[in-house]
Simulated scan of single mutants.
Amino acid sequence: MRVDKLRELSVEELNDQLADLKTELFNLRFQLAVGQLENPMRIREVRRSIAQVKTILREREIRREA
């Protein structure tokens, strides 16, 4: 998902998205371990998406504190 679309989501939706991405990353790592991973670049994409969601959540947390 693009960053501009992520910024439109609420905190609850971002947390749901983060949980989904973490589950997907777990499944991808499992597939990698058993040799069934078709697209190894997907791991990189999911890790990057997790970082983007966490960054947006942190920005909102800082803004709320100020």
Rank of each mutant, 00 (worst) to 15 (best):
Met1Arg: 05
Met1Asn: 02
Met1Pro: 04
Arg2Pro: 01
Val3Thr: 12
Asp4Val: 10
Asp4Glu: 15
Lys5Ser: 07
Lys5Asp: 11
Lys5Arg: 10
Leu6Ala: 10
Arg7Met: 08
Arg7Tyr: 02
Arg7Phe: 04
Glu8Thr: 15
Leu9Phe: 09
Leu9Ile: 00
Ser10Ile: 02
Ser10Arg: 00
Val11Tyr: 04
Glu12Pro: 00
Glu12Ser: 11
Glu13Ala: 12
Glu13Asp: 08
Glu13Tyr: 01
Glu13Asn: 06
Glu13Ile: 03
Leu14Gly: 02
Asn15Asp: 03
Asp16Asn: 14
Gln17Phe: 10
Gln17Arg: 15
Gln17Glu: 15
Leu18Lys: 03
Leu18Thr: 04
Leu18Asp: 06
Leu18Glu: 01
Ala19Ile: 05
Ala19Tyr: 07
Ala19Ser: 14
Ala19Thr: 09
Leu21Gln: 06
Leu21Ala: 08
Thr23Ala: 08
Thr23Lys: 10
Thr23Arg: 12
Thr23Asn: 05
Thr23Ser: 09
Glu24Pro: 00
Leu25Asn: 07
Phe26Ala: 14
Phe26Ser: 13
Asn27Gln: 08
Leu28Cys: 04
Leu28Val: 08
Arg29Thr: 09
Phe30Gln: 10
Phe30Asn: 07
Phe30Val: 13
Gln31Gly: 04
Gln31Pro: 02
Gln31Ser: 12
Leu32Ile: 05
Leu32Ala: 15
Ala33Phe: 06
Ala33Pro: 00
Ala33Gly: 07
Val34Ser: 06
Val34Asn: 10
Gly35Asn: 03
Gln36Thr: 15
Gln36Leu: 14
Gln36Ala: 09
Gln36His: 11
Leu37Met: 10
Glu38Phe: 07
Asn39Phe: 13
Asn39Gly: 07
Asn39His: 14
Asn39Arg: 15
Pro40Asp: 05
Pro40Gln: 07
Pro40Arg: 08
Met41His: 13
Met41Phe: 08
Arg42Glu: 11
Arg42Phe: 04
Ile43Asn: 04
Ile43Val: 15
Arg44Pro: 00
Arg44Gly: 10
Glu45Val: 13
Glu45Asn: 10
Glu45Gln: 12
Glu45Arg: 11
Val46Ser: 02
Arg47Gly: 10
Arg48Val: 08
Arg48Met: 09
Arg48Asp: 14
Ile50Met: 00
Ile50Arg: 03
Ile50Tyr: 01
Ala51Pro: 00
Ala51Ile: 04
Ala51Phe: 07
Gln52Tyr: 11
Gln52Asn: 15
Val53Leu: 01
Val53Gln: 04
Val53Cys: 06
Lys54Asn: 13
Thr55Tyr: 11
Thr55Leu: 11
Thr55Asn: 09
Leu57Gln: 02
Arg58Tyr: 13
Arg58Asp: 05
Glu59Met: 09
Glu59Gln: 12
Glu59Phe: 07
Arg60His: 00
Arg60Gly: 02
Glu61Phe: 08
Ile62Arg: 11
Ile62Asp: 05
Ile62Ser: 00
Arg63Ser: 13
Arg63Met: 12
Arg64Ile: 08
Glu65Gly: 04
Glu65Ile: 15
Ala66Gln: 11
Ala66Glu: 12
